[in-house]
Design a protein around this nucleic acid. Structure first.
Lengths: 145, 145
DNA sequence: TATTGTTATACTCTATAACTATA
DNA sequence: TATAGTTATAGAGTATAACAATA
């Protein structure tokens, strides 16, 4: 559930450790986001937009959100001058979303704080162990694509 | 941000891998929860209540939620017969929250599905690597207490 | 007075359905 | 007719402030 004691299943310890670590990491990200008055969804949106200016639907696909959810998300971010909506030149129905300078700065600030915080989390590990953890996490991620 | 490319910082790869893996794990848990019409918060609450019958404020402390948030959370779960509220014998102001049989069954079902899903995630790792990952995750968690 | 909990209120996030404008 | 997006509406989650009852 997230604070299970290890039990009969020999892999329960693995599940446990992974789930707890994941909650820890996501909580940290949420805390950093909240300090900037952002939700994790807003943060993810800013991250996506750093190297793209997608139409609304495509942005929604990246976030696994329906189009009306994206409308609201973008509207709130636009009200804070973090993103901008422009009509799509190629498609008269389309609207493309892009970062403003302020949005870009906020995304950069978040990334910096996130890196510092996660680095601090693994600071207790020996460099070799840090590399092992990175490699193992990567292996798990690779199989999920 | 969650899909950063590795870059200058030698530890960026570690941050990246950890954040992405965490989002993956939490997303999976969210999917399982959603399949049972539960939010992650509801799931966490059920997990906490498996071996406790705490007062509202204490439940809120476990979830890092304010008391009014807990009131709503518990009210919705109570409406679905997952939890029950009882006056606290020891404190006339207090209300204790506990699982119903249905809530307990749902918590157990969730745990089983979660274990299966996370096990599947790490199924690609050699047993020795799985143990290493578990140990490393644990090391990180230990230092955070 | 301090503490436990609920109520009132408000805002974000998400979803479904109906609607508009363009393709 | 199909697609891109918005609007209307509704429910969950969270927070703050005001309030009730008990300590």
């Amino acid at each position: 559930m997230m604070d299970e004691p290890a039990s009969i299943d020999p892999d329960a310890a693995t599940v446990d450790a992974l789930v707890q670590l994941s909650f820890l990491v996501i909580d940290e990200l949420g805390r950093i986001a909240a300090a900037h008055d952002l939700s994790l969804t807003q943060v993810r949106m800013l991250g996506i937009l750093r190297d793209r200016t997608p139409p609304m639907l495509e942005l929604g696909r990246h976030l696994t959100l329906g189009k009306s959810s994206v409308t609201g998300l973008v509207a709130r971010a636009e009200a804070r001058d973090l993103v901008r909506r422009r009509p799509d030149d190629a498609d008269g129905r389309g609207v493309r979303v892009g970062l403003t300078d302020g949005g870009r700065a906020l995304a950069a600030a978040f990334t910096a704080e996130m890196t510092a915080r996660i680095d601090a989390l693994v600071a207790g590990l020996a460099p070799r162990d840090r590399d092992r953890l990175t490699g193992l996490a990567w292996q798990v991620l690779q199989r999920e694509r």
